[in-house]
Design a protein around this nucleic acid. Sequence first.
DNA 1: GCGACAG
DNA 2: ATCTTGTCGC
Length: 234
Amino acid sequence: MKIEYIHGFDYNNEHDFVKIQNNLKKYIELKNRIEENKINVCAGVDLAYWEKDGETYGACSIIVLNYKTKEIIEKVSSHGKITVPYIAGFLAFREIPLIIEAAEKLNSEPDVFLFDGNGYLHYNHMGIATHASLFLNKPTIGIAKSYLKIDGVDYIMPENEKGSYKDIIINNEIYGRVVRTRPDVKPIFISCGNYIDLGTCNKIAMELVNKDSRLPIPVRLADLETHILRQTLK
DNA sequence: GCGACAG
DNA sequence: ATCTTGTCGC
């Protein structure tokens, strides 16, 4: 898959992460570029980390699935030294280099990408799923396992039933949605990445959940794959 | 010093 | 994210 920074923003000569994020906000389009019932191929992205000789290394996996049959179509990966530290709110700057490197190896062209982390549910509406969409030029969805509190606003716990959800409203605006994908497990935090609306994100995520995990299958499989990669590369 | 903190 | 054993439950 060919990757290009479609908006030509100079990312390398800019070291102010907040400024970059705020400049990118003008490219957010929460309108569907593809209808949910026309999706054929979806992808999940995740990374794992380890330390060696005082340095941090990471491995990225992208798992591509047939959206309807859930069969694995393709998987690609990348790995290397990680130079950017983890700072809440700036995850994208740490993870995107390896994500792009892996995505460039894709033969297929997924209709939608699911990320481990937030999208619009972010201090600057620019979580990793939204940020990455500007490179991938495809609809993206943020799937977070824990809540990133913004402006002191807590989320409302959804009912303990499959599919129950509560929108996360901050300063009178819907940032995302907390969704109970399965009973008796912690909910997940879904938000728009880009080129898609929240209801469609929710629908896609639920379509991709099975009995094995509370997470959508592509994200879960990518998570498992990064652990295998780590023990191979470590 | 204390608490917060996507991954 | 990662470090880690047992253990409760289906």
